[in-house]
């Protein structure tokens, strides 16, 4: 068991390096660099930047070095002092810009994850046990609908309904008065009162897929001989259901974190942009557009690292609950 966890942890190291390199390459892909974009912006307002200034700028940001050197400098900065570099656009350290937004991203993803599980688990079990009942058909219809609607469209439709029917503005995670206020109980409550909408939007499609997973798992387990054994012992249907097939169907369910988290974070990017949430996504989009390399890189890196940690947690959880893995 301990060996398994250590092996899994060690495996994280090359994965994280791969992710960081990927993030760096992705950000380096666009032709030109920030200085090019910067000069273009200045040029559009009739300011002319001479070659020397451009070169000086490049030197200051280290853009004149080879990509590998830039990468190594970048990754060393992150590892040694948590320094993600400087945002060209904001003219301040990236680390000052990202953490609060990353924290909100995480809060949003975790809240959606919990909501998804809480809804999908009982429905999936119900659908499997009452296979082909009216309830099962209704939930199946919901799952197909949930899988078919893009989350941004759902966000737009809900925004439309809120605006037209209730005259409410549901964008953002905070009311205007709290937006720049320091953290307080009131701000937390405000956050909670506004968090439900993006959570609900994000949870729809993941709930839909998870219901299908859980239903299929349960349908696999229900006809197994050990269920018949439990029945032959005289256990009531409900008790045996909870103790045996549900318990076993839960194992593959736990391993869904590994792909659910990347999905939720992916989905949250689009939804956050539509609803203008103060999470990582809108800033990432802006940074990408402006080729603000270190800022965008930090976001891509952290988001990818988050999902890697998610799959690590799910593997460890799985090993904890499944003796077949634990005692391998």
């Amino acid at each position: 068991m301990l060996k398994f966890i250590i092996k899994r942890l060690l495996w994280m190291i090359p994965s994280l390096f791969a992710v960081s390199f990927l993030a760096f390459v992705l950000i380096q892909l666009p032709p030109g660099d920030f200085v090019t974009t910067y000069i273009a912006t200045l040029a559009s307002s009739n300011e002319v930047v001479d070659q020397n200034t451009a070169a000086a700028l490049r030197e200051r940001f280290g853009l004149d070095q080879s990509m590998l050197v830039q990468y190594l400098k970048w990754i060393w900065g992150i590892l040694s002092r948590g320094d993600f570099g400087i945002s060209f656009e904001w003219q301040q350290p990236v680390s000052g810009l990202i953490w609060e937004r990353m924290a909100l991203t995480l809060v949003l993803a975790l809240a959606s994850l919990i909501a998804t599980w809480a809804i999908a688990l009982p429905i999936g079990v119900y659908s499997a046990v009452k296979k082909y009942s009216i309830g099962d058909y209704a939930f199946t219809a919901f799952t197909f609908f949930g899988l078919s609607i893009p989350s941004f469209l759902l966000a737009l439709v809900l925004m439309y309904i809120a605006a037209v029917e209730f005259g409410a503005d549901v964008g953002g995670l905070f009311s205007p008065e709290f937006e720049t206020a320091p953290w307080s109980i009131a701000k937390m409550l405000d956050l909670l009162s506004r968090l439900w909408l993006p959570v609900a939007i994000l949870a729809v499609s993941s709930t839909a897929s998870l219901i299908r997973v859980m239903r299929a798992n349960m349908l696999d387990e229900l006809p197994k001989p050990y269920v018949t054994t439990a029945r032959a012992k005289g256990l009531s249907e409900f008790r045996l259901l909870i103790k045996y097939p549900l318990r076993i169907a839960l194992n593959p369910f736990i391993s869904t974190i590994a792909w659910l988290l990347p999905n939720l974070i992916s989905g949250s990017v689009v939804v956050a942009i539509v609803l203008n949430l103060p999470t990582a996504a809108p800033l990432l989009l802006q940074a990408l557009m402006a080729q603000d390399m270190y800022l965008a890189g930090a976001f891509v890196l952290l988001i990818c690292a988050l999902t890697l940690i998610g799959s690590l947690i799910s593997d460890i959880l799985l090993a904890l609950v499944d003796p077949r893995i634990r005692l391998e």
Binding site: P225, A230, A232, R247, N251, P323
Partner: peptide
């Protein structure tokens, strides 16, 4: 009345 089955492996729960 108690019962035993053909496949003792699959007739016992794998996680209990």
């Amino acid at each position: 009345i108690a019962m035993i089955f053909q496949e003792p492996m699959s007739s016992l729960s794998p996680v209990h």
